[in-house]
Design a protein around this nucleic acid. Sequence first.
DNA 1: GTGAAAGCGCTAACAA
DNA 2: TTGTTAGCGCTTTCAC
Lengths: 340, 340
Amino acid sequence: MMTSLKDVAKLARVSPATASRALSKPETVAFITRERVTNAAKQLSYQPNVLARGLRQRGSRTLGAIISDILNPGQATLAKGIQDAAAKRDYTVFMFNTDEDTEKERRALESLRGHLPQGLIIVPSPGARENLKLVSNLPTVELDRSSGLRDAHTIMVDNVGGAREAVQHLTALGHKRIGMIFGSMDVSTAVERLQGYREALEGAGIAYREDLVLSGNHREEGGRVAAHTLLNRPAHQRPTALFVGNNEMTIGALLAMRELELRIPSDLSIVGFDDSRWAKLMQPAITVVAQPAYELAYLACETLLNRLENGVSHQTMRPASIRLSTTFIKRDSTAPPPPT
Amino acid sequence: MMTSLKDVAKLARVSPATASRALSKPETVAFITRERVTNAAKQLSYQPNVLARGLRQRGSRTLGAIISDILNPGQATLAKGIQDAAAKRDYTVFMFNTDEDTEKERRALESLRGHLPQGLIIVPSPGARENLKLVSNLPTVELDRSSGLRDAHTIMVDNVGGAREAVQHLTALGHKRIGMIFGSMDVSTAVERLQGYREALEGAGIAYREDLVLSGNHREEGGRVAAHTLLNRPAHQRPTALFVGNNEMTIGALLAMRELELRIPSDLSIVGFDDSRWAKLMQPAITVVAQPAYELAYLACETLLNRLENGVSHQTMRPASIRLSTTFIKRDSTAPPPPT
DNA sequence: GTGAAAGCGCTAACAA
DNA sequence: TTGTTAGCGCTTTCAC
């Protein structure tokens, strides 16, 4: 069975207390004793019972992580960044998916609570503000999006800047009728990307037109429908370029363009948000705004762990709000508008 | 702070033991008392401390899961299937990545051991056979691949059959020189897919040629190099079709084909193993052997949980070895060979 | 520098 | 049916 600290202590002929100290706070124990204990531990291939330790210390070296959908490559990258950063500091992670479902998010938080994690990293769902009350005194970092909660620590990309850059690229090419498919108003990233779109239009002296902006609800099918609506008009009314708010909806938009037999980039330019495997691989390859997802997640986890290890005092002091910049990647899906 | 069972007991004016029973084994407690306890629990929004419970019961409702790489869409799907199945039965999952690195796998297992999980689901790395000794009496299910360990429960797809079907499709189209890029000999799926390839050739009366089969080491770059080697010959020696052992290497092969300016499917047919976003989206869309990854993982988790709940007795009795069939999806990347 | 003892929150035996 | 008691394995006072 599982060997316990008592076994190690017996083999090293010390008390369990000393064995514990030798392993967890080596500097408080005489060198020679320490040696005896570490050897005994190795010999028995001792592995501390984190349940017992956690019970005693009121919390284990464990973090909770809640992301929206592990099947989305961007979110999977976030998951990986979190895990790598946690593993490096010897924390383990309980990972949950919400599928953007507020109810699932609530259940995840409840279940998490029982495990007494030291901290939480969350990609907040639209209902997160309410749900997060369940764990109100758990050190938390919001990743990728903001729940709108005051005093929250957030690690996000510069969505406004990224979107602006994408749309500026289009206006610089000479596009005047630029459509946008954004996510939905209850997700902060979508709102910010819309904001960037507006700023870029304004900067180019182009009037914002409501009929060129549609919600795609973050999903492929939503993107397809929105693109269909936007593009299914006579050529001289149709947008000559499309800016799409995330990778799922970009796929939808591409499908719609195929249905309508529009060619990229001769009939229509398209820029997506989020880079991905297929965006590179497509022919023509898709121009995108790339996000540093891995770095974002890694940083979020490090921020959380630093906060934890500097003690609770810092926790409320300075709610960090970090923004990482996006990278605009010009590929082959954008070109000047077709001549009229 | 965290409310404990004692608080609930006090509020309900019963002993902690009764409170515990009322919550965990309701049928052993009088209806009226049970009511009082459940109400108290709800009122205090009590959440059991799984650490304490786990300590007492020598193990918590927790599973370990070790997959190879969360960034691979196929593996991400496995992760999701595991999590969904576990959540449904109210288990939580510690998920680890190995990145196919045996050393990382060992660390994951060690760290897992301290958490006293009830069981383990693992996509074994090449060195898993050795590593799994670390948790030798932990109920384990091997997913997607086999470590070769005797008595292991394994849930895999019918790789031989899937590969055979793919290659039969090519021979039926009239291909004679069919190349294969497989993973590596230390991963069971790769070996099995190679086996299917051989069987299909044999069935069509085509001799197996070593110079048409190369390892791509499971990765994109390996696939690219292998494809380059295979295809960089005069047209009358070059394979007219390629069967590629996984999705990463298929991407590599596609890139190589672009470099060599070979057209699909007129110059060369290609079939991949694993379906994916981009395989559908490419033009031409890629013909593939699709795996039921989600079902596979869900089933693996259910198998494990059934075993756990039927007691240890069954555990050693019948090492299950389940095979799910693959689905051949004909798209546009396969056609008869070019005329000579 | 080390040991004895208490207790984290829970549940399983046993008693009532 | 309910309460009392003990103890899971660990760490942390507090003595020595």
